[in-house]
Design a protein around this nucleic acid. Structure first.
Length: 422
RNA sequence: GGAGGUGUCGCCUAGUCCGGUUUAUGGCGCCCGCCUGCUAAGCGGGUUGAGGGCAAACCCCUCUCGCGGGUUCAAAUCCCGCCACCUCCGCCA
């Protein structure tokens, strides 16, 4: 959630943030009004409560008629205190709901507009031109015995798959290479739970308009995470971290589950868009001031990984309207997919500043007091999309696939993935 | 799943039976000051967090004893529900 102080002190900045995302600013005015009602309710309750406590002390010291006289006054007061307290919590709840619905204020640098208004920051490498007709990843996956979408559909439904043989080897190779890179950079490896309570989901901003995309466990108050950002952010919830320990960097391997609601008909072929995939995710806790540099570092680690895969890609500065609730700025790395003849998102890194940390109550203890921290996340490698990009980019005319040299040690030294017989 | 136990301001801890001068005790650690060739010791003070009043500071006030309800003029303390952890039993990869 946004900083209540910012809302109160500089509401115009929040209004501008709404406009930049293409949203109405009426919620800002509603929240301000609710804040006024909230503060009035607090003042009223505290006045009554204070009086009640004063009298309570006198009751304790009194006896006989004096005590009876005091009780005459305190009994009706108790009812007033009770009503005032109820009114206060009601006003606070109303205020909170409004503030929670306001997305993070987009960074000044983030482009204005919606999905198509991104800015390309950089293009790295050259999309490969083929002197033969390239096969798509579904065909290559079949030839190599790497991907089985038919049986995935048979067992689990559309948008499911099995990685088989060298496909499974590829996942493990990518995961291990990513973990090694992150460990070398000082990240602490984590295997987090993929099933979380509502607090974690809500705290990371996934139960707002994004709730349609989230799997909920029938009959239980648990959700399947769409990214390990969720358990990693909630990991330090309700904690005050020592400033000297920052930045805290974690890298997690976990499955991710997404309903992909509203994307019917999009990317229906193959394993580009699926309901489940595994992912290695970077996550940082820093001060807000440090978060901007940390965001650049996360982006740099993503680029380093894509370079090892020898893919052509571009870096995109995502427009405000496409940021999602929590982020103030987001960079996507999009790799060239040969048979689609366009760049597609492979990784993404967001600076959520203090938006998630305030919801999850994650603070840092600094020399001049405690302050809400910033959280950042970045994909190091998700599984299916890089496999699509690798297979298609590094395919050869006979259906074999060249293994990027950095990946070879993680694939038992194989330099080429060969078609299987039959 | 069954039975029992525990949960107090960084850590440890008093208080809970029997509700009320408890602004929640004391120790450790930490911070500031005094003393001091230096350090240690000693002495004095401070040290949960959130929120409201204010332009702000001092200051004042409210909430915070795992969480949520209830009883009461008044709850760390009594009652109910929930959660986490520990021990034992059962089951299980």
């Amino acid at each position: 959630m946004i900083d209540p102080r910012l809302l109160r002190d500089d509401p115009d900045r929040v209004r501008k943030g709404q406009a930049k995302r293409g949203l109405s600013s009426s919620v800002v005015d509603q929240a301000l009004a609710a804040d006024g009602r909230r503060r009035a309710a607090i003042a009223e309750f505290e006045r009554l409560r204070s009086e009640q406590k004063q009298l309570g002390k006198q009751v304790a010291g009194a006896s006989g008629e004096d005590k009876q006289a005091l009780l005459e006054r305190t009994k009706p007061l108790a009812g007033e205190v009770r009503r005032a307290e109820a009114a206060q919590s009601e006003a606070e709840q109303a205020y909170r709901e409004l503030v929670l619905s306001i997305p993070n204020v987009a960074a000044d640098e983030a482009p204005e507009g919606g999905e198509d208004d991104f800015v390309v920051l950089e293009e790295v490498g050259t999309p490969r031109e083929f002197d033969f007709e390239p096969r798509d990843h579904v065909e290559l996956g079949r030839i190599l015995g790497a991907v089985d979408v038919e049986r995935g559909a048979k067992v689990s439904g559309s948008r499911f798959y099995y990685l088989t043989g060298v496909g499974a080897d590829l996942e493990l190779a990518l995961v291990n290479m990513a973990m090694d890179q992150a460990r070398s950079a000082g990240f602490t490896p984590m295997i987090p739970p993929a099933l979380v309570k509502p607090r974690a989901m809500e705290g990371t901003g996934f139960l707002g308009q994004a709730a349609d995309d989230v799997y909920r466990i029938e009959g239980q108050d648990l959700y399947l995470v769409g990214t390990s950002e969720v358990p990693l952010a909630a990991y330090h919830s309700d904690e005050i971290l020592d400033a000297d320990s920052l930045p805290l960097r974690y890298v997690a391997f976990s499955p991710c589950y997404r309903k992909e609601a509203g994307s019917h008909g999009k990317d229906t072929r193959g394993i580009f868009r699926v309901h489940w995939f595994d992912k290695v995710e970077m996550f940082s806790y820093t001060s807000i001031e440090e978060s901007y540099d940390e965001h650049q570092r996360l982006l740099a680690w993503e680029k380093e990984f894509l370079a090892k895969l020898e893919l052509a890609y571009r870096v995109v500065d995502v427009a405000a309207g496409d940021l999602g609730l929590s982020a103030e700025r987001k960079f996507d790395c999009e790799a060239w997919i040969p048979t689609q003849r366009r760049y597609r998102e492979l990784t993404s890194t967001s600076n959520c500043t203090d938006f998630q940390a305030r919801r999850l109550d994650i603070r840092g203890r600094f020399a001049n007091g405690t302050r809400t921290l910033a959280t950042l996340n970045g994909t190091l490698v998700s599984i299916t999309r890089p496999i699509v990009a690798i297979l298609e980019t590094h395919q050869q005319e006979d259906g074999s696939v060249r293994v990027p040299s950095a990946l070879q040690p993680y694939l038992q030294g194989r330099e080429v993935l060969e078609p299987i017989g039959g």
